[in-house]
Computed example of a mutant assay.
Amino acid sequence: MGINLQKGQKIDLTKGNPGLTKIMVGLGWDEVSKPKAGGFLGGLLGGGGGAAIDCDASAILLDAQDKLTSKDRLVYFGNLQSGDKSVKHSGDNLTGAGDGDDEQIQVDLSSVPSAIQKIVFVVNIYDCVKRKQDFGLIANAFIRVVNPVNGQEFCRYNLTESYAGKTSLVVAEVYRHNNEWKFAAIGQGTNDTSLSELIRRYQ
């Protein structure tokens, strides 16, 4: 059984797990039940635009100055692996339907270039402005870290606070510390309305 983390908590990944070189980062979410037409929430949010909510998970590979220095260090549905192939995305899930992980990102820690000090995992809502959607329409969001060799879950962070009005989430990060890798639960909501807007924070 993995460790359940709270916002702001950190955990060692490689220290205490000798030989660990690869991790799978799974992200999941559910769409809340759609309100009836004319209901308070429906009126407030324009009925969610009527479309299913398409959440997109991405990984941003940063240098020691927390900067994204090249476009091949952004891994998302439009670029499924980093230029060095150390980070790979499972592909886009358009609805978030079903149990378990909605999107998965594989990280080969042993292949991450030394210039990369941090990998930030974010989720944004595709076309959120046009569809009038925000994270108030999402429930049961989580991120977890798994050993892909044996399926052992190291840790899980359930994003339990309200993110109503927010259109992007900086969910968590995996980072180097004293030649080891650690995981930090972030859970920061933002009003960035697209991935391109979100990554400006790191440029």
Rank of each mutant, 00 (worst) to 15 (best):
I199W: 06
Q65S: 14
M1I: 13
E103A: 01
I143H: 04
L61N: 02
G100W: 12
D99A: 14
K166Y: 14
L13M: 06
D84P: 00
K132L: 13
L20K: 04
N79W: 08
G91I: 10
N93S: 13
F183L: 11
S111F: 12
A97D: 15
K34G: 06
G28S: 02
D108G: 06
G100I: 11
M1C: 12
I186Y: 06
A164L: 12
L41K: 13
V32M: 12
W29L: 04
L198M: 05
S82Q: 12
G2L: 12
M24A: 09
G187Y: 05
H89F: 11
D102I: 02
G136P: 05
V120E: 09
V174E: 01
S82C: 10
D101E: 09
Q203S: 12
L61K: 09
A97W: 00
H89T: 07
V174L: 15
L27N: 09
Y157A: 04
V170K: 09
G98T: 00
A51S: 12
L20F: 06
Q133C: 07
D72A: 06
G26Y: 08
E180H: 13
G19M: 09
V145F: 08
G49T: 01
K118L: 10
V25N: 05
N179L: 08
F121R: 00
E103C: 02
F142S: 10
G96K: 00
P113L: 09
G98Q: 11
V149W: 02
I186Q: 11
I199M: 06
L27G: 15
S86K: 07
G165P: 01
N17Q: 01
K132V: 10
D127W: 04
L198S: 00
K88T: 15
S111K: 15
F40Q: 08
K34A: 08
A115L: 14
V149Y: 01
N17L: 08
I105W: 00
G16I: 06
G46R: 04
I116W: 06
N191H: 12
F77R: 03
F121K: 00
T69Q: 11
I125F: 02
S70W: 08
E103P: 02
V170I: 15
V171N: 13
G26M: 01
R144H: 13
Y126K: 00
N93E: 02
S114T: 12
N150Y: 03
G98I: 09
S110E: 14
V120C: 08
K118T: 13
I60G: 02
L13K: 04
K7T: 11
A57R: 01
